[in-house]
Amino acid sequence: MSASPYVLPILLLIGSNLFMTFAWYGHLKYKAAPLATVVLVSWGIAFFEYCLMVPANRLGHQVYSAAQLKGMQEIITLTVFAGFSISYLGEAIKWNHVAAFVLIVAAAFLLFLE
């Protein structure tokens, strides 16, 4: 059974963002690691992000506009990052973070109005 052309890009974007978040922010727990090592490890993790992001956009563009894909990606990124920030980095999400997120969701909603 294959996923809907509307759903598969979203699933790929979620997977992509999981890799992206670890590539960009996972090293923050390892401040003693040399910067060159962190960059190379992050780059290696980012390869898997691209392996999911590129197909997500290629397949998604069959049913979504590029602007809609970018809007979805931003919402997914913030959602994944919020969970990562709380669970992995132990940082709290504050009221202003939530307010900013709501505004970004509102902006993305506008992308889907025809």
Rank of each mutant, 00 (worst) to 15 (best):
A99K: 12
F19Y: 11
L103Y: 05
V39I: 14
Y64I: 03
K70N: 06
L8F: 13
V102D: 01
L18P: 15
F48G: 14
E114D: 13
I14G: 11
L89W: 04
V105F: 07
H61I: 03
G44Y: 04
G26S: 06
I86N: 00
I14T: 11
N57L: 06
K70W: 05
F109N: 08
E114M: 05
A56C: 09
P55F: 06
V41P: 10
S4R: 04
L8T: 12
S2L: 03
G71E: 08
A100T: 14
L18M: 14
K29E: 03
P5Y: 09
Y6K: 09
T37P: 00
L13F: 12
T77E: 03
A92Y: 05
A33M: 11
W24G: 00
F19K: 09
F109S: 08
Y64C: 02
F19G: 07
S65T: 14
V63Q: 15
T21V: 12
T77Q: 07
I104M: 10
T79C: 12
M72E: 01
N57P: 02
V80F: 04
S2Q: 04
F47D: 04
F22D: 01
W24Y: 00
L59K: 13
N96C: 04
I76R: 02
S16W: 13
F22W: 12
E74C: 12
S2E: 02
G83E: 02
M53E: 06
L52W: 10
F47W: 13
F101K: 03
A100P: 01
A66H: 15
G83N: 05
E49V: 04
A46L: 10
F109V: 13
Y50R: 08
F81G: 09
L111Q: 13
F19Q: 08
L52R: 14
L113E: 04
F109T: 11
A3C: 09
L28G: 04
L52V: 14
A56T: 01
A106S: 12
S87P: 02
H27G: 11
Y6D: 05
Q68P: 15
A33R: 04
L78D: 01
G83V: 06
K31V: 15
I75R: 06
M20Y: 05
N96F: 10
K31P: 10
V54A: 11
A32K: 15
M1A: 13
F19E: 05
W24S: 00
